[in-house]
Simulated scan of single mutants.
Amino acid sequence: MRTLDSLILDTAAPVLTQAKTVLVCDDPTGDLERAARDASARVLLLDSDYRRCQAAATGVEVAGDVRLDAFLAAADVVGPCVAVGEMPKSLGRLEYLAKATAGAGVADVTVVFGGNNKHLSRSMNDTLAASFTNVGASRGRGKFRCLVASGPREGTYEPRRANGFVAYGGVFAGTKEDRGGAMLREALPAELGRFLDLGCGNGSVSRGLEGAVSVTATDSDADAVLSARAIGIDTTWDDAGSRFEDASFDTIALNPPFHDRAAVDATQAQHLLDATARLLAPGGQLFMVHNSHLRYRSEVERRFSAVAQVARDATFTVLRAAH
């Protein structure tokens, strides 16, 4: 078990041993979920990641692609209740979790979120304090520390709305059109046929798109799915379009992630590229944007016979690929 997960569980232990309900929030390793089940409490999984949720044990209740506050209201949460998780990397995700947890209707609820000291900030304390009356920090362990909150305040969660976007939680780009996505959208052809926005984020690429027989979006992040749906895009929550049959789309747009929290990780695009090769119909085209300094072209060429650069600037490159 990671040092961070051990610290979170040790900090939560006084409440965890008495808890009737455990809310497992962002849980990259699954160790927090396993510990919650070992505590013999009711376990509700609020993680937004599709693959982690699919790996949840039998009996664990998964929020999935449902608003967290609506899920918790329907779940009829019983206290004492503790929420545990790795500290979200975005304040938007932290606010979402905090307000949903505080609004769960349980007076005896404690939140324990842990992270690396260099990634924790005063603004995280302030975000928690907007939903809880008591907020403090645990003792550190190595380079890690937890923020602990209790005493829920009244309030409801409202996603951010601006520029024609609706941003739930930690959705990438929030209420803005990211520059890479804008460049990708500009490179798309006039005729799109059956169009898929693979890894849609807030929906900036497929919002109001014309020239398509159908527009479908998908993302493995539940916050992204809710955000795209909120602006009218038909969006599924799954892993790399796993719900779709082979050769289902004529045009696929891909703006893959390249960060694992603060670290650059270009390998995150691998399974998404595998998916495009499977999902693209004969004669179809993939349009992919990536940071110009990352070596993605060779990965695209491994899967497609015809690859060309269609746009490039100092930051981004757009490739077109076909079988």
Score class of each variant (00 low, 15 high):
Arg229His: 03
Ala212Asn: 03
Asp221Tyr: 00
Ser220Trp: 02
Thr218Ile: 05
Arg243Asn: 15
Asp234Phe: 09
Ser214Met: 07
Val148Thr: 06
Thr133Asn: 09
Ala190Val: 02
Leu192Trp: 04
Ser220Asn: 14
Ala224Glu: 08
Val135Phe: 08
Thr235Arg: 12
Gly155Phe: 06
Asp239Ala: 15
Val225Ser: 12
Leu120Ser: 07
Asp197Glu: 04
Thr133Trp: 00
Ala149Trp: 02
Lys176Cys: 03
Ala149Leu: 04
Leu209Asn: 04
Thr156Asp: 15
Phe144Tyr: 14
Gly193Asn: 02
Trp237Met: 05
Thr236Cys: 14
Ala173Ser: 15
Thr110Lys: 06
Asp126Pro: 07
Gly155Lys: 02
Thr236Lys: 13
Asp108Phe: 12
Lys118Met: 11
Leu226Phe: 05
Val166Ser: 07
Ala247Arg: 15
Arg145Val: 12
Asn202Val: 03
Pro159Asp: 00
Phe132Glu: 10
Cys146Gly: 06
Phe195Tyr: 13
Val135His: 12
Val109Asp: 04
Leu192Met: 11
Ala247Pro: 07
Leu198Val: 07
Ser242Trp: 01
Asp238Glu: 15
Arg207Trp: 00
Arg194Asp: 14
Val111Ala: 11
Asp238His: 11
Gly142Pro: 13
Glu154Pro: 07
Thr133Glu: 15
Gly164Met: 01
Arg207Asn: 07
Gly241Trp: 03
Glu191Cys: 00
Leu120Trp: 00
Asp246Glu: 11
Leu196Gln: 11
Ala228Asp: 06
Ala129Arg: 14
Thr236Asp: 13
Ala224Val: 04
Gly142Arg: 12
Arg207Asp: 02
Gly164Glu: 00
Arg229Val: 02
Glu154Ile: 13
Lys176Thr: 13
Asp221Val: 03
Ala137Tyr: 03
Arg243Ser: 11
Ala182Ile: 07
Ser248Gly: 13
Leu198Asn: 10
Phe165Leu: 12
Ala224His: 06
Gly208His: 01
Ala217Tyr: 06
